[in-house]
Design a binder for these strands. Sequence first.
DNA 1: AATAAAAATTAGATATGTCTAAAATAAGTT
DNA 2: AACTTATTTTAGACATATCTAATTTTTATT
Lengths: 225, 225
Amino acid sequence: MLTRSEEDHLKAVHALLQTIGADGKAAKAAGTKDIAERLRTKASSVTDMLKKLAAKGYLKHEPYYGVKLTAKGETLALQLVRRHRLWETFLVERLGFGWDEVHEVAEQMEHVASDKLTDRLDDYLGNPGFDPHGDPIPDRKGKIRTKRTQRLSLCKGGEAVRIAAVSDTTDGLLRLLDSKGLRIGTQLTVLEVHAFDGSMDIKPKNGAAFSLSKDVSHHLQVERG
Amino acid sequence: MLTRSEEDHLKAVHALLQTIGADGKAAKAAGTKDIAERLRTKASSVTDMLKKLAAKGYLKHEPYYGVKLTAKGETLALQLVRRHRLWETFLVERLGFGWDEVHEVAEQMEHVASDKLTDRLDDYLGNPGFDPHGDPIPDRKGKIRTKRTQRLSLCKGGEAVRIAAVSDTTDGLLRLLDSKGLRIGTQLTVLEVHAFDGSMDIKPKNGAAFSLSKDVSHHLQVERG
DNA sequence: AATAAAAATTAGATATGTCTAAAATAAGTT
DNA sequence: AACTTATTTTAGACATATCTAATTTTTATT
């Protein structure tokens, strides 16, 4: 069993290795300074922790160079990411939290260790592929789906997206979409989201702008770009 | 902000002060030995912790006698009990956990500190008055309802109960209950619960035994005795 | 290539929460 | 009341996780 701090360090390493640097590619190893910044601690403290985690077999530490995760560490990090994103999804979709206020709480919940809990929560939420921010949720084996889609209703003003899927295929909904010229593949820009009722103004690439109720945008899965 | 260990000590004190002793009344103060046993630690460690919590104003510590909670400590302890029991309810009612396998997980979840989360969860669950074990759930002000009712579906074989309420008042359900002679106030004994489909065999006080599907027992609120 | 700057590590200090063993106090017993 | 037993506290040790300051190593610059 790892302590909370150990888990946090492992997750920070994982996140840094995912991050794409200025040169356009992901780093091969994470440095203590960056890890320290992420965890709001000091590089010397991180060094100590990395040694401990390396001794336990979660990562490889090459002094003065950096750390990489072992397979064991990667598995555990993905587990943490999985828990974090599942709880974020729960908070937003079931408890009505705003997508921007769930991070801190999920940061605490992700440390609750119970595979049964995680897997049941996953089922309860309908095995979502992506969290409210559009980040992919690893499945119980740690596998990550690559398509990045999210509900149109969760987009913010200014985002340019393409319709990827319609999640609830009701005749009425499809007819409505068709009448507005919206179908799979349609590219559009979100102009503004109205906090009052969740409705949004959108502008399809080849057409005039119009408004969409939250009931509709909720069922549209879009991908970025 | 309290540490996890501080919260655990506070909760242990609270639990011990609730407990009714051999003499039939609750203790006036909790002793270090009992607290230590509950937390699987040593009395000397508890003494240290009690001093710290007393210094922070959560409890009054009379050396060699015991501790009582201050109003501040009582509030916090009730908050922890509230969180614990709400999560237990969530685990059983929404994720399908068995009532006997939720304690450990809830023990971890109760330390997630967010009033917004707690209150939203409460609403999401329909502001339940009692957890799956029949223990009362303090409301957001710390108030505890005194009636102890729970779903018949959560009772185990051997329990003798009285029907207190029907939670989902569908015509069909009420007709069904009526045809079986079940109504508010009916006393009955649970003979056996079948793990396979959740159905149960019950015996009303004045009548022959018969079986009840989980769909039905789920909607019956009963009280003990 | 020499030097300056940045980053990582080590060494030693501090705070926390736990422990064991010994001393102090309270409660029970004859 | 004196003695025995149980409980609580104190004192000192230890492991963990953090920090600052000093040292080592790597990277960048002239």
